[in-house]
């Protein structure tokens, strides 16, 4: 019996090239840090953590972010968004980040 069923051993993690933008002047990324390769299965929470991290915005206390992709909020993984919209991991995705209006206590559910 295959003990590794449902767990593809060598499934390659897809990467997506994202371009972060924002309209908030106080939250701009330094030049040269706006593009990043992220794992395709990343969701809002992961992206928010990435943006807060030392090598990105380097915030002193984490700011929860929401992400707009082609005008609507990202509520699935990037991978699922691309699939649902007939796109592939070959595309560079522009993500506009805004301060999340959702109370931080619920953020883990996204």
């Amino acid at each position: 019996m295959d003990t590794e069923m449902g767990q593809p051993a060598l499934a390659e993690v897809q990467q997506i090239r994202v371009n972060f933008t924002t309209t908030s002047p106080d939250l701009q990324l330094p030049e040269g840090r706006t593009q990043l390769l992220v794992p395709a299965d990343i969701k809002r929470y992961g992206l928010s953590r990435v943006l807060n991290s030392e090598s990105m915005l380097n915030t002193s206390s984490p700011i929860p972010f929401d992400f707009l992709i082609n005008g609507s909020f990202l509520r699935t993984s990037l991978e699922d968004y691309l699939k649902a919209n007939g796109l592939s991991a070959e595309s560079t995705v522009t993500l506009q980040y805004v301060r999340s209006l959702i109370p931080p206590v619920f953020q883990a559910s996204f």
């Binding site: 990043l36 390769l37 992220v38 794992p39 990435v50 991290s53 090598s55 990105m56």
Partner: peptide, 16 residues
């Protein structure tokens, strides 16, 4: 040349 990738470390740390 300047493009970075994200790496999630085990200890909650995020590196590029």
């Amino acid at each position: 040349v300047n493009l970075k990738k994200v790496r999630f470390m085990g200890n909650d740390e995020i590196r590029t």
